[in-house]
């Protein structure tokens, strides 16, 4: 019985580690998704604007209405801050994980101890992996920079400026 409680404890610990280590990538993925969505909506907006030139007043009105809706949607997406999303506090596969940990938990203490150890190893791995990635990124800021930014900084180093357009 005591070992069951311990298993549950390390399950919770594991979930916490998973949530924490996935946080950054989830935010990045959401931002990327938003960017794509905005690009798509902007494209639709341009075609709608073309429809606004329609001589038929009814069509024109409809297009205007749609345009307003689109603008609102784009603004919402631009203001969306994924780091505040509630989704970040959950691990999607927690049920599956719980089942995996609890199923066929044999009565043998040695087997349970080994499993506990395994769960601890996983939590340790996730923790160290996350910290490692953060450190590498901190010490190598160029890694995450996009090409445009790199060119800009290289130019700035020799006193030049990339023309903006």
């Amino acid at each position: 019985m005591a070992s069951k409680i311990e298993l549950l404890g390390s399950y919770k610990q594991l979930i916490r580690a998973l949530v924490k280590s996935n946080r950054r990538s989830k935010i990045a993925q959401q931002l990327e998704d938003n960017k794509k969505q905005i690009a798509l909506l902007t494209y639709r907006k341009i075609s709608l604007m073309r429809q606004c030139q329609d001589p038929n007043p009814q069509e024109k009105l409809k297009a205007m209405m749609n345009l307003n809706g689109l603008n609102k949607e784009i603004d919402n997406l631009k203001q969306d801050d994924p780091s505040k999303s509630k989704k970040l506090y959950f691990y999607e596969k927690s049920d599956e994980l719980k089942k995996m940990i609890q199923e066929d938990s044999s009565v043998e203490t040695s087997a349970i101890m080994k499993k506990l150890e395994h769960l601890r190893d996983i939590a340790g791995f996730l923790q160290n992996q996350m910290e490692f990635e953060q450190l590498v990124e901190r010490y190598n800021p160029g890694l995450k920079m996009d090409q445009e930014e790199k060119v800009k900084r290289t130019a700035a180093k020799v006193g030049l400026q990339v023309p903006d357009n």
Binding site: L18, S21, N22, R24, S25, K26, A28, Q29, E32, K93, E96, L97, M100, H118, I122, F125, Q129, F132, E133, V136, L143, K144, D146
Partner: peptide, 27 residues
Amino acid sequence: RKLLALLLQNEWSSMFSLAIKPHSLPI
């Protein structure tokens, strides 16, 4: 090795979308 499969899946689904770095896939 069920948990291992889960971790592999996690490794590939929690990747940054911009670029894949070799040190991010130890498992």
